[in-house]
Amino acid sequence: MGRMAGVLVAACLALGAQAAEPPVFVLNSLQADISVIDPVTWTETARIATGKEPHHLYLTPDEKSLIVANALGDSLTFVDPGTAQVQRTVRGIVDPYHLRFSPDMQWLVTAANRLNHVDFYRWDGKEPTLVQRVATGKTPSHLWIDSASRTVYSTMQDSDELVAIDIATQKIKWRTGTGAMPADVYGSPDGRNLFVGLTGSDSVEVFDISGEQPRSVQRIKTGSGAHAFRAAGDGRHLFVSNRVANTISKIDMQALRVVDSYPAPGGPDCMDVSADGRWIYVSARWARKMLVIDTVERKVARAINVGKSPHGVWTLRHAKR
């Protein structure tokens, strides 16, 4: 009986550990809600209502809240990243298409994609307070902030530009031309290069930002519709989704070349990566699915039904970004 009891206790503990696995979140942009995915059964377990057109999401510095930016809803929805419970809604945040916290945790920055400005909110640990609205030019898309919390970089989707904004003064430092329809932007770990996905092309453009002015140094051909990035977790490699080519490319950020590729049907968009780096969770924008891609077997391992136009993807158990 003692041995049997021990087996039962072990089984219960295993079930409890599974139940404690944090969910994977997928934003359904055209349904104003979030799909909550159980990473053990790989089923959608709930839908969370948000404001209109949630596109991107970001974790608060204390990791206690996942912020969903509702672009047409002019609001932020705060969700517990471990339990998927809605915590609160902050209204009056104008057109928050994309968002990012500065590494020093002092600033929340949002890109107003349809209204052509980038907003700087002072963050006190609880509430965002608008400090400055910076007119940027046509269609700011994705943001990146350097590790020193000195500069915000924003792509300009419809004017084919990359803009740098000084955080201390909230003034534009420089702007430079890019390839067609720049989308996501990602900075190399050494702070020297910026990688820009060219959704209107088939490449990732690399800019050297180590000097006073940026310099385009290379275009890495990845696939048509190069769009969103996610770090592989090893400090060297970067995944990019190629929305039109229906693939995901793995880029070596030091060698500046593609070293691997994976199938991702249905218009791959935003991604997250499992803590061990093996699995990519990606929204299939046109297929109403979230795909789980096995980077070892180089194949789609699972396809989970979600809502209309799935976009942002996030989980707490992710590879180092």
Rank of each mutant, 00 (worst) to 15 (best):
F195W: 00
P268K: 03
T155Y: 03
A301P: 00
L194A: 01
N305A: 11
R298K: 15
Y121F: 15
K171G: 12
F195N: 00
V244G: 11
Q85W: 12
D38T: 08
P265G: 12
K221W: 14
D166E: 12
P39T: 07
V196D: 00
G266D: 12
S65E: 09
P310W: 05
G2D: 08
V109K: 03
A255P: 06
A17D: 14
I67M: 09
Y58R: 09
T129S: 06
L57C: 15
A135H: 09
M271S: 09
T89C: 00
H227M: 05
K299P: 02
K308T: 07
S147D: 13
M253K: 04
R257T: 12
S75R: 02
Y58D: 09
L27K: 07
V196T: 01
L76N: 00
S210T: 11
V7G: 04
P189N: 07
P268G: 02
H56F: 09
H318L: 13
I280Y: 04
P61T: 08
F195H: 00
Y281M: 11
V273L: 07
I67Y: 04
T139Q: 04
L72C: 08
S65C: 07
A5H: 15
G179N: 05
S159E: 10
L99V: 06
T110Y: 00
V79W: 04
S249A: 15
V296C: 06
F229H: 08
A264R: 03
R88F: 10
L162H: 03
S29K: 06
V244Q: 11
G307E: 05
H56N: 10
Q132W: 09
H142F: 15
P39Y: 13
L59F: 12
R175Y: 06
A232E: 13
A148V: 11
T43D: 15
K138F: 00
I172W: 00
V9H: 11
T295K: 01
H227P: 00
G200D: 03
E161C: 01
Q18M: 15
D74P: 01
